[in-house]
Design a protein around this nucleic acid. Structure first.
Length: 327
DNA sequence: CATCAGGGCCCTG
DNA sequence: CAGGGCCCTGAT
């Protein structure tokens, strides 16, 4: 392991998420594979970030309650950061983490739903979470494709070790993402040597699109969902599954749910129809069901049921699920 | 040992 | 628009 960069300068600010806000259920998602750029323990998340080419260490601490939310945000850096920089990084964090999402109507509408109601009560204030830039999310999406979880973890780790930056702050050592320019300079073979296989080509071409500014996250934020979708599908190696996740996670379209992959189909069949995963309900039927039951809140509704399942899995073995998650 | 499918996508016919 | 190929790994 290479020597870390020590971040010794710390600035502190506060965030006030829209209530209700469940800190841990929002900031930690047990279904996400472990990744060397973050760490969680109850009431705290450490997360690295690269912003305007500057590596940053973040620490989020819960200092509030569900109905009176308050988050302490510490921003570590190697050099002194100007006020402009601090303002811009804070604005970016507020956008990405989307703590201001208002759940009141969703809760109001489904609190008495026979399946969703109890889960909403249990996880009241849980919000979806994205911490990544568009570029970073695309890399993760590519690494997930056609691979088991362990393999995805290994590929991501190899990429961090070769192209990321190891940071040390607050007693943690975590990797920070690279700028697209770093991978633009290496060859496809260099990437293949990290055992990422044919995905090397996708990573090279997606990276190059960012370096040549064929795609711009900040412009896309102000465009329609259709335009966002079109721009994403134009990227080599990015198809409907990846685009679906990105539209909802990165661009906050909480009603985006048009694609269900086979492994998700099996889990949904069990969760929503108590159907044997070996004989899953058709994707078409699942999509119609989500649309009819939950309408514009369908992604959020599915998120609640899904996260509830994976929180359970964290503490107890769920036999049927283990077979579907290939580690 | 060999075979195979996996948390997709591209390309071809 | 259906189906084969792609890298590699762990399960069988």
């Amino acid at each position: 392991m290479s020597k870390p960069i020590f971040l010794e300068i710390k600035q502190v600010t506060e965030l006030f998420p829209k209530a209700p806000f469940n800190f841990d259920a929002t900031i930690h998602k047990p279904d996400h594979f472990p990744s060397a750029d973050n760490e969680w323990e109850p009431r705290i998340r450490w997360q690295t970030m690269i912003w305007k080419k500057v590596p940053i260490g973040l620490k989020f601490e819960n200092q509030g309650t569900i109905d009176n939310p308050r988050v302490l945000l510490s921003i570590w850096s190697q050099d002194e950061l100007g006020q402009d920089f601090l303002n811009s990084i804070t604005d970016e964090i507020k956008y990405r983490y989307y703590f201001q999402l208002d759940l009141t109507e969703f809760i109001q509408r489904f609190r008495n739903d026979s399946q969703l109601g109890p889960v909403i009560n249990k996880w009241r204030g849980m919000k979806p979470l994205n911490v990544s830039s568009l570029y970073e999310y695309l890399i993760v999406a590519i690494v997930l494709q056609n691979a088991t979880v362990r393999r995805s973890v290994n590929m991501m780790q190899a990429l961090f070790e070769n192209y990321g930056t190891l940071l040390s702050y607050d007693g943690k050592e975590l990797y920070c993402f690279w700028e697209p320019g770093v991978i633009d300079k290496v060859t496809e073979k260099d990437l293949r040597d990290l055992k990422i296989g044919y995905r090397a080509k996708s990573i090279k071409r997606v990276t190059n699109a960012f370096v040549r500014e064929k795609i711009n996250e900040y412009e896309l934020r102000n465009k329609s969902r259709e335009e966002q979708q079109e721009a994403l599908l134009a990227l080599y190696g990015i198809g409907p599954a990846s685009v679906g996740y990105i539209l909802s996670d990165v661009f906050h379209h909480l009603d985006e749910l048009n694609y269900i992959s086979p492994w998700e189909q099996k889990i949904y069949s069990k969760l929503f129809f108590n159907q044997d995963p070996d004989k899953p309900v058709s994707v078409d039927k699942l999509l119609k069901f989500f649309d009819q039951c939950y309408g514009k809140y369908k992604t959020l509704a599915v998120h609640y049921i899904w996260e509830d399942l994976f929180w359970k899995r964290k503490y107890e073995k769920i036999e049927w699920l283990e077979k579907l998650i290939r580690l």
